[in-house]
Design a protein around this nucleic acid. Structure first.
Lengths: 225, 225
DNA sequence: ACCTGAACACCGTTCAAGT
DNA sequence: ACCTGAACACCGTTCAAGT
């Protein structure tokens, strides 16, 4: 039974758990109060308001990132490591993944990945603008992959997800065969994924390959042999 | 003054406008009723519930896509055209961009792009799994780029965005110079963008380049000369 | 066919008050 | 220092009733 007492950390942890089990919409001040056996207003002692709670949840996403493969590794491997680390972190709290945006350039751990990523791209030879774009893109890619792992319906609980997916599949079944041959053929792959690790690895590869080629193009343009 | 009468289309249009001007959270049944000079309950005659309204808004995002560069164009150009078309469409209604996920494989226009994209990838030589992944990734990339155009704070109104950005910049100013040299150097590029078209083009290029290289790797692996 | 009134079960938040 | 009671301005939704 061990009642957990109301602290800021406990609140954030509980909030993350609710978001994962249900939805981000399901984490409300009132609900949290209820779960701690306390009135809603009690939370306001520990947290300024809901927005600050969401910020704190966002900060938690960046905890325990391990992206350091050493400064001697090629930059593209370093970049891949960053994206993998972000994906791993976000998969721990998929329900709160979108909160990562707002805290990368703010929280301590967020700034640490940012610094690391910006450095490796800059030293690889990208311009300032490109470095900013790719670094942003890296985080976005991670969020997006966790959002789009086939079979996930962003913003819905487990039950609703199942219902909506079933409806989508049924809708596609009803489609005229001649007009949508590829949609029909690919539907199973669009709605399910028996190998999530493979899904993530393929997409990380795609992302890093894009950056690699782009840099190569840049350098041959600048210094044609 | 010309009062617009309450129809399903008018409601959806108004909802999209509110989301763009403010936030998706700002579109509520009650608010819409108010704007049409009608009680909230009146909307339920035209729309089953809020979820259906959001679905309808999502459908609208896929209207007027022009991604057809002809079947003779190389597949990578066709893919670039799809991503550009999606970006253009989402930029018309940035406030509702996330609603695109749920309707790609459902709405008529969504299914049309899906069919087109799946076909071009499949014919280019990707496996079924890869085709599904890249097609999903294409939409996600578009959504994500519109979300992350430097200087945008997803989920906040214009005023709030300005406030949060200012706070972020100030936070970075306060950072120890020695610990975060790259974050400090790159901050202007992370928080603003004087050339959005360039931003989008660079990232589309990155995405397509990744796909191109990945396919090339695949083919040399399958058929080593 | 289309809209309203009244009601219910929810939100976040403030502020004075309790211990 | 930490929590509560009462209150306010919001949500989505149902359902019987009006025209």
């Amino acid at each position: 039974m061990a009642k957990i007492d109301l602290t800021r950390d406990a609140i954030v942890e509980r909030a993350l758990a609710i978001a994962d089990a249900e939805t981000l919409d399901a984490v409300t001040i009132r609900r949290l109060g209820q779960e701690f056996g306390v009135t809603p207003m009690a939370l306001y002692w520990h947290v300024k308001n809901k927005d600050e709670l969401l910020d704190a949840m966002g900060d938690a996403l960046f905890a325990d990132l391990s992206y350091d493969v050493g400064p001697d590794a090629p930059w593209d491997e370093q970049l891949a490591a960053v994206v993998r680390a972000l994906i791993a972190a976000l998969r721990r709290h998929p329900g709160s993944r979108e909160l990562a945006y707002r805290r990368v350039m703010v929280s301590r751990d967020g700034l640490a990945v940012a610094e690391h990523t910006l450095r490796l791209l800059r030293e690889a030879g990208f311009t300032r603008r490109q470095t900013a774009d790719i670094a942003t893109h890296a985080l976005q890619t991670a969020i997006m992959l966790v959002s789009s792992e086939p079979g996930s319906e962003p913003g819905y609980s487990a039950d609703e997800t199942a219902a909506r997916l079933a409806e989508k599949r049924a809708g596609i079944e009803r489609l005229p065969v001649d007009d949508y041959p590829y949609v029909r053929e690919m539907a199973p792959d669009m709605f399910a994924c028996d190998d999530p690790e493979g899904f993530y690895e393929f997409n990380v590869h795609l992302f890093v390959a894009g950056a690699r080629v782009t840099l190569a193009e840049l350098q041959t343009a600048q210094a044609p042999a």
